[in-house]
Simulated scan of single mutants.
Amino acid sequence: MTITLSQQDYWQLVRHIQETNAAASQPHQDINRNTDEYDITWKYPKQLGAGYYRKIRIRDGIVLAIADYRLHDDLIITSDEREHPLELNYVLMGAAPSESYPVKVGQHCFCGSGMAPEEAGYEVADLHKFTVNIHIEPALLGQWATDCSKELSQSLNYLIKPPDRLYHLQIYNTSSAMQQIVQHILQCPFQGLTQRIYLEGKVWELMALQLAQLPEMDGSTPSAKGLKPDDIERIHYAKELLVARLDDPPSLIDLARLIGINDCKLKVGFRQVFGTTVFGYLQDCRMERARQLLTAGEMTITEAAQAVGYVNRSHFALAFRKKFGINPSVYRKRQRHFWQIS
């Protein structure tokens, strides 16, 4: 069975477990922690799986999260467009590829700040997942670049973007030096204020190593691996395949295999060529096709939903309303009224 949750519902469920069962929450046996307001561990929701989630607020603007769990069922978490801070996400065990985070064990994802697009994350049941995630507000990085916290260095422009601009995202292999620092974080021997000072030092060590991996920061967007004409042609073919298979679209990995390039190049290249993610483009096409079907008046809402790949009518209605600002039932009634008076 596959469970689908919005990101908001997912975190509401996790926090509900924290609030109603806080007394039963126990830290992972391999991690020492101080049970204060800055460092909270709670059990993973038993409805979804087993494990724990730990959140440490190191200081204002820096949050460390450690997740160690195993799901009972496959899980899809959908996210709307949202403002995103700087992020380092290290995969230590069992992460499955997704639309925006095709990160494997021994790799990490680095996100700049800005707008994170609408997306869907896929997680596989019975797979042990262990990740270390760090969120940093961009103004803090700016303090290292300039003497004024309100003025960001020009060299960081492509990493620190306003909320209406798509954020920078790239996948890296995690170096041995980074792996060692991550282990230091997991094995932190301190508590309270000493713990937070120690962990902040490790966070900035990781950020320094990360920045050292980036292209020369000259105030312009880093030169991503250039797309060859053949790559661009394949990416256009990927778009055609999506349009042709709206009712049963291929996964990102399958789509990459069909067009003959790897999934990472497809993800990055699709965004470069069309200015949106593969998932975002697919959703737009689905909704536009559904609107056309409802306008034609030859299908019910359920039939239109199925024609564009939706099994659950309520999920379809939610996506339609988000795209067009109106429920599909209301839209169809208006169209039928228009046909009657035409």
Rank of each mutant, 00 (worst) to 15 (best):
V308M: 01
E216Q: 10
R286H: 06
G260Q: 09
I235P: 12
L227C: 05
Q213N: 05
V268W: 08
A290Y: 04
C264V: 14
E240Q: 15
G219R: 06
F270N: 13
I261H: 01
L258D: 14
R271P: 01
I261K: 04
L293M: 13
Q272P: 01
A244T: 05
K267S: 08
L214N: 10
L255F: 15
Y281R: 11
T300M: 05
S220L: 06
C285G: 02
T302F: 07
A290H: 02
I253M: 13
A290C: 00
L258E: 15
V273L: 04
R257W: 04
L255C: 13
F279A: 10
E298I: 00
Q210R: 05
L252G: 09
Q272F: 00
T300L: 06
G226H: 07
M287E: 13
K239H: 14
G226N: 05
G309M: 03
T277Q: 09
Y237C: 12
R291Q: 07
V278S: 10
G275I: 02
Q213A: 04
P249C: 00
M217V: 00
G309Q: 13
R289I: 03
T302G: 02
K225E: 00
M287F: 03
D247Q: 13
S251M: 03
C285H: 11
D248Q: 15
A212E: 13
T221K: 04
P250D: 14
G260S: 01
F270W: 11
L255A: 05
D218T: 03
P249R: 04
D230E: 14
K225L: 07
R234N: 12
R289A: 02
A212S: 10
S251N: 10
S220V: 01
D263G: 04
I261Y: 01
F279P: 03
K265T: 08
E298T: 09
E303A: 08
L246E: 03
I301S: 00
L294E: 08
T277A: 02
S251K: 12
D284H: 13
R257Q: 14
L211H: 01
T300W: 09
T295N: 04
G275K: 03
Q306W: 06
A305F: 11
Q283I: 01
G275L: 03
A238M: 05
I232W: 07
R271M: 00
T302W: 06
E288Q: 15
T276N: 13
D247C: 11
L241F: 07
D218N: 11
P250W: 00
N262Y: 03
A238R: 11
L211Y: 01
R234V: 03
A304P: 00
R271K: 13
Q272E: 14
V278L: 09
T300D: 08
C264N: 12
D231H: 15
N262F: 00
I232V: 15
K228C: 00
E303G: 07
R291A: 07
R289G: 02
L282M: 14
L214I: 05
G226P: 05
D247H: 12
G280V: 07
A296H: 10
E288R: 07
K267C: 01
P229C: 03
L241H: 09
Y237I: 02
F274E: 14
